[in-house]
Simulated scan of single mutants.
Amino acid sequence: MRSLSDTLERLARLKSLGWEPTDAPSHLEALEGFGSNPGALAAKVYVPSLLPKHPALVVVLHGCTQTASGYDHGTGWSKLAERHGFVVLLPEQVRANNGNLCFNWFVPGDTRRGQGEAHSIRQMIDAVVSRHGIDTSRIYVSGLSAGGGMANAMLAAYPEVFAGGAIIAGLPYGVAATVPEAFDRMRGHGLPAPSALQSRLKAASTHQGPWPIISVWQGTQDNTVAAANAQAIIDQWRGVHEVGSRPDLEEKVDGQSKTVWKDARGKQVIEYNSIAGMGHGTPIDTALGDENVAPYLLDVGISSTLHSAKSWGLLRQGVEPLQAKTGGAKRPSVSSQEAKEPEGIQQIIESALRMAGLMR
């Protein structure tokens, strides 16, 4: 067994990196009475203190083992919403549906239009739109991992609802229907050809366009969801946006590779952000002051939250981040082992609490 001093030292180090053993106190409100809720999901919402007329809405979907408030604390979505005046909706998985709190991104009954979890999220959106006067032309969705897969499912099943989406370490729509198939696809095995991927997207609804713009985020060292899935998501959406396999623009953003596809009118419709050396998780930048390290929330010096909001036109001019990127010392990143193994961290904490006599 670890010594108490060693255990407490590790706890202090994790805390200095922004990790907390439980969700930070949340300022999110529970969303109640939003419909029949066939997927039996929960939900939270954040409404800024100064709500403009006809604000935008961002739907944020957490990853496995995460909660709505914990993911929000890490990604900083509600803090950004407070300063820039948009609403955030955070659907939340419950253990009765999935023991690991994963959205069921691969289950046909949960991802088809009008069914299961996807329909519950659609009902949540309707409720928030009605209660807060949302501009229905400015609704967006972002999600990590299983939440990324569900974000893609929402974009596929309800493309008329969304103006854009950010899929982080996610998966293509309609590529798995069982647990073994889901794990194979996560590893990059058995992914369909681009033509089949595009057919599944078009079959998800009767929508004829315009289509949501798509942003894909992926770490090059992700051993949970293989990078082949990022390329498959791009291939899936190239068909409806009528763009070729070769990108129109390649550039560096915050030191990372960004690849862009433009439609015939010159509009950026698909972008791919490849994060060098990053494992499985959402890329954050703690130097901004809004974002916090936790398992699967990785400080790599680029914020998918900020860049997504910027690309969607949600940022007010003249409103700066909480902390300028040039100010203050940057927090060190959580190691890949700590980021990928929250269960091990939990065991360390429980051991320390038991040794301190605070837990049996």
Rank of each mutant, 00 (worst) to 15 (best):
S351A: 09
D254V: 06
Q198P: 06
G114Q: 07
R112Y: 03
V300I: 08
I168P: 02
Q123H: 07
S257A: 11
R360L: 09
P55V: 14
V243W: 07
Y71K: 04
L314E: 11
V141D: 01
I134Q: 03
D222I: 08
G209M: 10
H207N: 07
S303C: 05
G63T: 11
G149V: 02
H280L: 01
A203H: 03
Q268D: 14
D235A: 13
G148N: 10
I302C: 05
L31R: 13
I284C: 00
I167A: 06
L288K: 08
R354E: 13
E338I: 13
W19C: 01
G35L: 10
K267T: 15
S304E: 15
G281E: 02
G244H: 14
I284Q: 01
W211P: 01
D254P: 00
G164E: 05
E160L: 06
D126C: 07
A163M: 04
R246G: 00
A118W: 08
C102Q: 06
I214E: 09
A146K: 03
G70R: 14
D299T: 10
S215K: 13
M1V: 12
F34G: 06
P180Q: 09
F162L: 06
D263I: 10
I233D: 01
R83A: 12
L201N: 04
P295T: 13
Q221S: 12
T305V: 09
D263A: 06
R265H: 13
S257E: 14
V128W: 09
S308Y: 06
T67G: 13
G190M: 04
A40G: 03
I213W: 04
T65H: 09
V87C: 02
L358K: 15
W261P: 03
I125F: 04
A30E: 14
P321N: 13
A127R: 15
G313S: 04
Y140A: 03
V293H: 07
L57M: 06
G289F: 02
W211C: 04
L80K: 12
L31Y: 07
L80V: 15
F106D: 00
P25S: 10
I167W: 05
A153H: 03
S335A: 05
N104D: 12
T259Q: 11
A81N: 10
L353E: 11
I121S: 04
K310N: 12
G33L: 07
R185M: 07
G74Q: 05
G289T: 14
V293R: 12
S78R: 10
A153C: 06
G244E: 14
N273M: 04
P342K: 11
H132E: 07
